[in-house]
Amino acid sequence: MVIDVFLALGLVVLAWQALIGGSLFRGIVMFIVFGMVLTLAWAWLGSPDLAMAEAAIGAGVTGALIMIAYWRLRRINAVEPRDPSPARSRLALVIAVLATGLVGAIGLAAVSALTGDATAARVMNETLPDTGLGNPITGVLIVFRNLDTLLEVAVVLAAYIAARAALGRESADLPLPPAPDTPLLTPLVVTLAPLTMVVAIYLLKAGSQYPGGAFQASALLAALGVLLVLTGRVGPAAAANWLTRAGLVIGTLVFCLVGLGMLVIGAPLLAIPGIWAVYLIEAAMMISIGLTLVLLFAGAPGLSGKRS
């Protein structure tokens, strides 16, 4: 009971710090800490998958993306926005209190009316064994509700193309912070890179039986990419070569082709034939989402070797 209160309170206080008062930089840092505590909360609530996802994607990658965006905005030193008028903040306060009250009351009512007959979940638990998968979440994502996952990967792809459209110019002159010239970085990269790769592959493989899976693995790859970009080992390329574009697209493409392939051999649409198909799709998604997140971080159409 105490831990619940402690974590819940921590979350609210950190959100308060991140959103209200203080400088923006401090808000971003607090937001990343909020992500960490949320990871603990998911773990405490009993969902290791979500904990890992929140840590890797929610706090890690999102935090990095916001930080680099903050850094770029400071370089453009855009005009300082005006303070909101007092009337507006009073109105906002009223709306916020109303919303909190509504969600709180409804939440409590929903919790008290918990019937516990979550039919869908019970059916899922029964049918999971004959898919050969141990981890229910991977089962739901890849086998039972795989249309959601397919469209989700398409969302990531759409987000990437739309971001490229918004940033416009083909050449990658979006600024990146200079790589620190300290000797310590080389050993860091040399040890971390292979280790991250191994852990990512392990997570992918373990995903079918234990908590883990494509999304957590892709976030790890993205983190590795971010590290390489920041330490200057990898630089933004002017144009996206064929390989990069294929990498971006492979997740969605493989999923669609497997789905359509099933139709050809008479199985229902998007039915997953076996474990090998699960791994194939997860690997493709890992590569595609990881690469997309790194490119979004670098703000470039592609990656190239040495960065000057």
Binding site: P180, T182, L184, L185, L188, T191, L192, L195
Partner: peptide, 16 residues
């Protein structure tokens, strides 16, 4: 070991 590694490098960078 991982935590140690990360701590040292980041501390070093912050100090610089």
């Amino acid at each position: 070991l991982m935590a140690l590694f990360a701590a040292t490098v980041s501390a070093h960078l912050i100090a610089r």
